[in-house]
Amino acid sequence: MLLRRSGAKKNETYNLNVVTNADEGEVGVPNETFLLRIAEAVYEGNHEALVAIREEGKETLGEQALVDAIAVACGFNGITKVANATGIPLDETTEKDTVQMRKETKIDDYDDSHKSVVYR
């Protein structure tokens, strides 16, 4: 999760558990509530939510930032399909550096070894 690295560069600590629903509260990123709404609406293809986001986003983020945020969400909604469909392992350094974080955020539950047991 590169969010952790971007926080470290700015000497800021983000609550990553909120991103994966492993915890409640705030992550610590400006405009996070609105940005998380964008992520969720794009993932769900929720037309009603997207209409509201387009309207509110002009005020909350500004037009260009709104489009850029949507672009990031759409890109990751595509690239995660590639990752999920090919079963790629983590890159070596990521695997070494994120053991505790993956455990705390429950990202380990997304590994095939876990999914293969749960989804038979």
């Binding site: 994966t20 940005l35 992520a39 672009a71 990031v72 997304y110």
Partner: peptide, 29 residues
């Protein structure tokens, strides 16, 4: 839509990574 470096977007790197992380989580990636 995304780059690890030199991403010329009107949102910050942290905001970008927050969206990326949330979408990845929703996709159980």
């Amino acid at each position: 839509h995304y780059a690890l470096a030199d991403l010329d977007f009107a949102i910050t790197r942290s905001q970008t990574e927050l969206i990326a992380a949330r979408v990845s989580s929703l996709n159980q990636c």
